[in-house]
Simulated scan of single mutants.
Amino acid sequence: MKAIYALLALLVVATAPCATAHESIPVYGYTVVHAYPHDPKAYTEGLLYLHGYLYESTGQVGESTVRKVDLDTGKVLQKTSTPWPDYGEGIAVWQNRLIQLTWRSHQGFIYDLATLKPLARFPYPGEGWALTSDGSYLYMSDGTPVIRRLDPNTLKQVGSIKVTANGKPLQNINELEWVKGQIFANVWLTNRIARIDPATGKVVGWIDLTGLAPKPDTLADPVNDVLNGIAYDAKHDRLFVTGKCWPKLYQIRLTGPKRRS
């Protein structure tokens, strides 16, 4: 499971957002607008907001699910288990389908959006980490600095985005969300979200969410129960974030930028 690689990944991630003499990236802060209940047993891998509800994909072998969640109460309204032994990862919606990746099984699942009933499977090479959509394409992360662009009808790769921060490839790109023409991406095992220009692949901003995570002694696995999960309500311009097994989901408002990195 991903947890096995956590400490090794920390060494890689630590070098990702370094500044250079010729380029720097603005760093945004945040304020919490509202805190909502979140299932503390949900190992969040994918998150999105649609028509007043949250849709979430959870990980871990034997515990992976896709679910529809009431935002205000955190109540799970619908839930379907991901077939064993697949490890659930990111999700996106295309038309009347919910599409879910799995970590290392080289396959994803398609569900009926209204019922979460499984409809089909589809193959892809490599690992699957996260999905989002701009309304025309799907974008898929696999833990590398390359985000794949997929045809949402065939689910085949039709392009790619090479992501760099200060000229260096950005490793461990995880959960994705399309926000106002940018791709917001959790960087696994950090407190930062990268704001990526999809035209150039450059990180054009960092969102520093230091201080948002629960206290380590309240988490079952403080090394791996990290920030992961971004959802955006475009109609009301609301940004939501959470983490793996966090008891809260937060609506935040960005501040700054206050500095550059």
Rank of each mutant, 00 (worst) to 15 (best):
L155T: 02
N174V: 06
D142A: 12
V187G: 01
W178L: 12
R192E: 15
Y232F: 15
I207K: 03
G126C: 12
N224M: 08
V204R: 10
G229A: 06
V179L: 12
T210D: 14
P222I: 04
S133D: 09
V226F: 02
V204K: 10
A220Y: 12
A130H: 00
P152E: 06
E175L: 08
A231D: 05
T144Y: 08
D225S: 02
I196C: 06
P216L: 08
V158I: 12
G159N: 02
L209R: 00
W188C: 06
F184I: 01
Y139H: 11
A185K: 00
K162F: 14
L176N: 05
D208C: 10
Q157G: 03
K202G: 04
A234Y: 13
W188M: 11
A185E: 01
A199V: 12
L227P: 00
I207C: 05
K202H: 15
R148H: 14
K235L: 15
L176E: 03
P222V: 05
R149V: 15
W206S: 01
T132I: 03
G126H: 09
D233T: 04
N174G: 06
N186V: 01
W206R: 04
W188D: 04
L155W: 11
S160Y: 07
L138M: 13
A213L: 07
V187K: 00
K168T: 13
L131M: 10
L212A: 05
I207L: 11
N153I: 12
V223F: 14
L209Q: 05
L150T: 02
W188N: 03
N174C: 09
Y137G: 07
T210L: 11
L155M: 12
K156T: 05
S133Q: 06
M140Q: 14
L150Q: 03
P152M: 11
P169H: 05
L189M: 15
R148S: 12
W178M: 12
G128T: 03
P214E: 07
T144Q: 08
I183G: 00
G181C: 09
G229H: 04
S136N: 15
V163S: 00
E177A: 14
N186M: 04
P214D: 07
V187S: 01
G128R: 00
T164H: 14
I230W: 03
G126Y: 11
G128I: 04
I183E: 02
P145W: 07
R149T: 15
L176V: 09
V187F: 05
A165F: 10
K235M: 13
T218A: 13
E175K: 01
T190H: 05
K235A: 15
N224D: 15
Y139T: 05
E127C: 10
G201F: 13
W206E: 12
I183V: 03
N191R: 09
I147Q: 00
Q171P: 09
G159P: 03
L209Y: 08
V204Y: 11
T154C: 10
D225M: 06
I230A: 00
V146S: 04
P222F: 09
I230Y: 01
K202V: 11
G128L: 10
N166E: 08
K202M: 13
Q182K: 13
G128F: 03
P152T: 02
Y137H: 15
A234G: 06
P198R: 01
W129S: 00
Q182H: 15
W178G: 04
Q157M: 12
I193F: 09
G167V: 10
D208I: 09
P222M: 06
K202Q: 15
K180R: 15
L155V: 06
A130I: 01
A231M: 09
P198W: 08
A194Q: 04
A185C: 06
E177Q: 14
